[in-house]
Design a protein around this nucleic acid. Structure first.
Length: 489
RNA sequence: GGCCCCAUAGUCUAGCGGUUAGGACGCCGGCCUCUCACGCCGGAAUCCGGGGUUCAAGUCCCCGUGGGGUCACCA
């Protein structure tokens, strides 16, 4: 039975999605954003976007922009965020360092945290030893025993250190998860988590709790992978003397083999689905059907309808497999209800727009004698997965086992991740560097790449082609090709 | 391995003590039709196992088993 759509007035609902700008906009982010958005809207609350960019080595410059664009593309708009501002800003954690430092100091003063001078090397050794002895993993508390006065002096003198949580050594920490009930974890399971790194930036645990409190987040809706660190967060709320938000841990999206969804086994970038021609409303609907049900045997519903019907008791906790077949079917449903005009608009927004066509034209103009050759010459720019059967016998590297060829391709694809920008010159230098490192002939590898990305042995210049094809399609096709090669006998 | 979460067809799910276990994707067959697709009709396929509780268990409890997550100066 669906719940009542009206609710008694109560404390304002404020929720957030807090992606880390360390890569491509992830479908998991979209999934969690959807549930936050829908819950907020169903309760007349606010949906906040916060950027968790406290890892200065992993954060990527354009990632925030991409996340914002992707979520906007989906239509999950936020009331407060780095781009739109808001009363609780800034919404970028890198701009809130002072706040975290103050709060960490507060905890040290209260004895709830302490400076730790252990080096990364010592910690690595410790971990190794614990692993070897099959002992419980975790910090051994060496610096906890330090005299507080003395420790403070060392810190003040500029000695490199972190701030660690002084977790209780006995007792039980309880987490009340709205979806799972009470979860109890014994204190022995929780080690003295680093709160402030030696570079002065906070870890997720500190930043998250401080921000959620300061931003008056009422409900924390996040993925299940966080559930085991929630006790640490509970401890922090207690140490600060703050009320806890209400916890909701949503199930994790899964690969076909049921493991946590990952790019090696499944396209996870929202941009992939956009480039593959999935409509935002279809992707949203599909995500809405994973772990939640509308009721009345209805599966096709809009965002607004989901908002209207949303209740937590319709959430199911089994980790849903991200079934791209069903997503395609869902997309078909929406595609078919577009008018002819709307369909053409969708096509134009996709890859048949002027901007994209100009880039494609540039690559094939020397290679066509008549306009009517354009479409056949460029078909692979507008296709999904390719059929490698016709070029199967050419998909190989001389004297190299196919499974090694697959490994090499996958490794190269990984290297492309590091490209600052997805452009030809960079792809070429990464590829050449790769061949050199592996002692592979460029002509062999480049042909492989050509066949993998275009399905043909003749194509426009390889790296320009890959650049125009885009990161998502290129990566997808190369992975597909690698699988195809390994499956050949 | 420790701890935690989860468990209805291959997949997404409905079910909230009494049902011929419902819907959807995918698959198979048929109809429609100049072909294909759409659409329509039909079909195969599920309660992880074992103990309890109960007149009655897919539904509640316990134990297994299986899957997953997590154990970083990453989020």
């Amino acid at each position: 039975m669906p719940g009542h759509s009206s609710h008694a007035p109560q404390a304002p609902v404020r929720v957030r999605v807090a992606p880390s700008p360390t890569g491509d906009p992830h479908v998991g982010t979209a999934y969690i954003a959807l549930f936050n958005y829908v819950f907020a809207k169903s309760r007349g609350g606010a949906f906040v976007l916060r950027i968790e960019d406290t890892d200065r080595s992993r954060s990527r410059a354009d990632s925030e922009r991409q996340i914002i664009d992707a979520l906007r593309w989906l239509g999950l708009t936020w009331d407060e965020g780095p781009d739109v501002g808001g009363a609780a800003g800034p919404y970028r954690q890198s701009e809130r360092s002072e706040t975290y430092r103050e709060h960490a100091a507060m905890l040290v003063d209260r004895g709830s945290a302490y400076p730790c001078f252990c080096t990364a090397e010592r910690l690595a050794e410790l971990r190794e030893r614990q692993k070897a002895e099959k002992a419980t993993l975790g910090y051994d508390g060496a610096c906890r025993a330090l005299d507080p006065e003395r420790a403070r002096e060392r810190a003040r003198a500029g000695e490199s250190h972190t701030i660690r949580l002084a977790a209780p050594q006995s007792g039980v920490i309880t987490v009340d998860d709205e979806l799972r009930g009470r979860v109890e974890i014994s204190a022995e399971q929780i080690d003295d988590q680093v709160l402030l790194k030696s570079d002065g930036f906070p870890t997720y645990h500190l930043a998250n709790v401080v921000d959620d409190h300061l931003m008056e987040i009422s409900h924390v809706i996040r993925a299940e992978e966080w559930i085991s660190s929630t006790p640490k967060h509970v401890l922090l709320y207690e140490a600060f003397g703050w009320p806890q938000p209400t916890w909701f841990h949503m199930p994790l999206l899964r690969n076909k083999d049921k493991s946590k969804i990952s790019k090696r086994k499944n396209p996870v970038s929202i941009n992939y689905y956009r480039d593959a021609g999935i409509l935002p409303r279809a992707l949203l609907n599909f995500l809405g059907v994973l772990g939640w049900s509308y009721g009345d045997d209805i599966e096709k519903f809009t965002l607004a309808e989901m908002v209207e019907r949303f209740t937590w008791d319709r959430v199911s906790l089994g980790g849903p497999v991200f079934d791209t077949d069903k997503l395609r079917w869902m997309n078909e449903q929406y595609l078919h209800e577009l008018s002819h005009e709307e369909l053409v608009d969708a096509l134009l927004d996709w890859r048949l727009g002027r901007e994209h066509l100009v880039r494609v034209a540039e690559l094939v103009r020397e290679r066509i004698k008549q306009l009517n050759e354009f479409i056949p010459a460029t078909a692979f720019f507008f296709s999904g997965d390719l059929d490698y059967e016709p070029v199967a016998d050419k998909l190989h590297i001389p004297e190299t086992p196919n499974k090694d060829v697959k490994k090499a391709i996958l490794e190269l694809v990984e290297r492309y991740e590091q490209a600052e920008e997805w452009r030809a010159s960079e792809l070429e230098s990464i590829s050449r560097g790769f061949c050199e490192d592996k002692g592979l002939k460029t002509k062999h590898v480049f042909m492989l790449l050509r066949l993998g990305t275009t399905g043909r042995k003749a194509s426009p210049p390889l790296f320009e082609t890959m650049a125009v094809l885009g990161k998502e399609l290129t990566r997808r096709r190369l992975r597909q090709a690698a699988d195809f090669i390994a499956a050949k006998k």
